[in-house]
Nucleic acid binder design. Structure first.
Lengths: 218, 218
DNA sequence: TGTTTGACAGACTAGTTGGTTTGTTATTAA
DNA sequence: TTAATAACAAACCAACTAGTCTGTCAAACA
């Protein structure tokens, strides 16, 4: 994509960092992406308004349609350039840095619970939000979304396989199935928090999730 | 509400069933509700268009705003009069008719899986859809939604307590927590099916869910 | 230094959307 | 039978919304 080429080119030349208040295409584009991500997180893609993003960023129609050909393309860019990295940083990369499969997962679970700020509590998981909203509505969104889920599933399944090889995890269980189950459960719990507006659901159900994780030990 | 009074009155008199093509306020109202429910299921409340409902039902603005003061009130009515009964029929009442807690839940799970038609597969659970979309956006929706979740949680917790009294279920576990966990997991799995557009996710993760249910036996 | 071009600013537009208003007809109570 | 009213039909409206278009200005380039 031309966008990425442009971005890489500018990153390498890197004469932009010092000019914050003047014109800077990369900063402008990123501001739009970040704001759109926040708006989608709260109101969904359908609830996202181009005008709303412009108001929040202080930009204009001219700026927006210079960087994005349509609202839909903005949606795609938010998934590729903001949502996917977010999921990696928050959920996938941590999986890859785990030593002991079970201990690590339980630790990760606790961290996730503690990091649940009051704000995040009722916004839910950005990936799951978009999944639930856009999967039945737009195929171009669905394929991008499903690719991220697949990467997540694979990373978790690999962690479990690794655990099996190290005899930390029961050899009888199927890593792919357990990975699907764990991610579905996590997302289900986070989704419940959204309507209860409290982390009580997380604590209550999380206790059972921890029990389940313990039951996976070899 | 006057609406309910009107409805009850007409139901008891019951001179409406034979007049299908002529004027009938109840039939009209119900047609709007049912169509709106379908539309919300597919596109969400924000994606629901009053005009769209009218087009599908063959009605007009006059008819719509005779029965509902606003789109929002329609949303409330859909929750109260369509969604809630749907959840009861599909999920809550079956819980109350279970003899053996664990066996019954496993059976219910299998039934749910088999009843997952190709259509339902990518529409997901109507209650969870609305929860994820509307909880952060509108308090009047959230409170109605959370009430339904509470009823569901309570029914499942009661089933588990009953199981404990009958020594079918481990006495050590906390019914409330397990109920929260099970519902969250079910919804998480259904949500995953939505983007994969297949029941594979249901089968894979469902296997683990069944294992978990087995582990609850006394 | 002049010129081209990328990065915007902002007025404008066409189509949509929830909602209003006025009029009409079937039903019902008197 | 008739007056009142419930149950609509449909034109209309104001606000909104994605997208366009023309113009401007700063920076890079020749």
């Amino acid at each position: 994509m031309t966008v990425d080429v442009n971005k890489i080119a500018c990153d390498t030349i890197d004469k932009s960092a010092d000019k914050l208040s003047t014109r800077n295409a990369d900063v402008t584009r990123q501001k739009i992406l970040d704001t759109a991500f926040e708006e989608i997180l709260l109101k969904g893609y359908q609830g996202l308004r181009v005008d709303g993003v412009l108001k929040k960023t202080g930009l204009t129609k001219g700026a927006f349609y210079h960087h994005f050909v349509s609202k839909k393309e903005l949606g795609h860019a938010v998934i590729d350039e903001v949502l996917r990295p977010w999921i990696y940083e928050r959920w996938i990369t941590p999986l890859q840095n785990i030593d002991h499969s079970i201990d690590g997962l339980i630790e990760l679970l606790k961290e996730a619970r503690d990091e649940m700020t009051a704000c995040e509590l009722h916004t839910g998981c950005p990936l799951n939000n978009l999944t639930q909203e856009m999967s039945p509505l737009d195929e171009s969104f669905r394929t991008r979304i499903v690719a991220i889920w697949d990467e997540w599933h694979q990373a978790l399944a690999e962690l479990l396989e690794r655990g099996q090889r190290l005899e930390q995890v029961k050899s009888s269980l199927k890593p792919k199935n357990v990975a699907r189950f764990l991610i579905a459960t996590m997302e289900g719990i986070i989704g419940q928090c959204k309507c209860y507006m409290s982390d009580e659901a997380f604590y209550d159900a999380g206790e059972c999730l921890q029990d389940y994780l313990e039951s996976l030990r070899a």
